[in-house]
Amino acid sequence: MGSKRINNSRRSFIKKTAALTGTILASSSLKPFNAILFATEQSDESKPWYGIGIDIEKCIGCGNCAKACKEENNVPKEPFYFRNWVEQYTIKNDGEIVVESPNGGIDGFTQSVPDEEIFKTFFVPKMCNHCAKSPCTQVCPVGATFESPEGIALMDENYCIGCRYCIQACPYGCRYIHPDKGTADKCTLCYHRIKKGLKPACFEVCPTGARIFGDLNEKDGVMHNFLKNHNCMVLKPNLNTGSKLYYNGLSAEVR
C-alpha cells in the first residue's frame, strides 16, 4: 500500500508523446486511415481545449457537486442516474478496499468501517473524463456522441438511437440511458454555462475549490499551473482514453 505515484512531469510526458506520435506519423502514411485509427487530435492550439483538475486532498465529500449537477441539468432524481458523483474510498488495515457512494454522495456520507480498522480514507469525485480519444465517441454507430471543438464529449439526443454501445464502451461508468427519453445521457461540462463564460455547476458549488477546469492551451492558466504544481494522474491510464480529468493525490486503489 501507499502506492508511489507516477512521478512523471507532465510536460516531458507531452513531449514524449508528441515525439512518438511524430515519429509514427512520419515513418508511415497512417493519416488517411484516421477513421480507423481513431485518434482525435486537438486541431488548433490557439483555441480553448478544456481539461479538468480535481484535487482529492481538498475534497471533503460534501456531495454539493453531485447535487448541483442533478439540479442544473435535470438529471433524473432516482439513484441510478448520475453525471457527477462522489465515492468514498476506505482502505482497511488488512488491505481490503471498501467503496461507498450512497445516492452518489448527494445526501452525504457515513463511515461504515470502524475507526481502528481504517488505514486511510478519502473521497474521489467522479464525472465524465472528457476523453480526447473517447471510447464512447468511437463506438457510437450513428455519431450521436461527438467531441466539441473545445474537447468536450457531447451527446445529441435527437440523433441517438439508444443502442447503449457507448455505455458499454465508457470505462468509467459515466453514462446512462435517460429513463424518459430512451437515449443516452452524460455530463456536458455544463456546455450551456461555459459558453456564457460561467463555470460548470459542480465547480461553482465546491466549497473547498477541489475542482478546477480550464483551457489546457492557456499558458499560465489554471490548468497549466495545476498540472505543473501537482503530480497528477488520470483514471485507468492503461486504456489510453486520453482522459482530460486530472486528479491530484490519486491513490493507486482508485479505479
Partner: peptide, 24 residues
Amino acid sequence: HLGKPFRFYEIMITPHFSSAMAIF
C-alpha cells in the same frame, strides 16, 4: 431493444465508421 427503435435507419444512412456497430 433500441431505446429509439424508429431511428434504426440512421445506422444505415449516417453510419459512423469508427464504430464497430455501424456497419452491421
